[in-house]
Amino acid sequence: MERQNKEEDKKIDIKETQVWKAVFGDLLFGEFKPLSPFNSLMRGIAKIMQLHPYNMSVGGRRIITYTFCLGGLSVFFFSLLACTGAFLMIYYNPDVNSAYANIEDMRYIVPFGVLIRNMHRWTAHLMVMFVALHMLRVFLTAAYKPPRELNWIVGVILLVMTLLASFTGYLLPWDQLAYWGVTIGTSMGENAPLLGAKGPFAILAPGKDVNSILVGGTSVGQPTLLRFYLLHAIAIPLGIAGLMGFHFWRIRRAGGVSGPL
């Protein structure tokens, strides 16, 4: 008891300051109060989604250090992207004649448009980086070993989908950067062996190869813009959200994030 008191004398505990208590005190860090609607809500949501175990062993809790939050932060960036993206969708029309003007409107006319667009873009960069770092942490802590092999594979698919989501979004402003960036990217499909029109042993004609499924023709144009828009705004986000749900469910089934044995 004595040692404890001495420690407390020396440093100010930030959780004991009035500001902290006022902002976070009972709401977030205090005991659950049965009647607090916020707490019941959070608890309810979390319980239904089974994202966190209600209780956790001290040892298990201890290993959750900063690098174990990289996956969680990826989830956070994904939700931020969904919110800002929904806002951008209101003002954006996937048409080569208006797309660029829509983005310019976003910058100069729409209230807070430039802020939301910037946030969407920078968060996308962050998400790509954090997903890669999350993979690094999973590897370095050997978290892919049994029983988590399937989650590793789901993770690799998530990584690819994250990259594709960023890549399809890259075309939407329809500026020089977008057009030529995507032209380079899609030209790789053209060069696939057998299935690409320009690849070795090509068996398919230009405009009928794998690349044209993505591009909708022989070069990037209106069909490409529409396809990329649908992929970017609907298909890929739904896919990522679904796989994320599976990812988290598997973590719980494996008994939480991996702890030292």
Partner: peptide, 24 residues
């Protein structure tokens, strides 16, 4: 910091520094 936006796409004008997004 503003997200980049260059001129309108022009299929006839290949930029000399044509580049993919950084992750690719």
């Amino acid at each position: 910091m503003d997200a980049p936006l260059k001129e309108l796409a022009n299929p006839a004008d290949t930029p000399i520094d044509e580049r993919a997004p950084w992750y690719f």
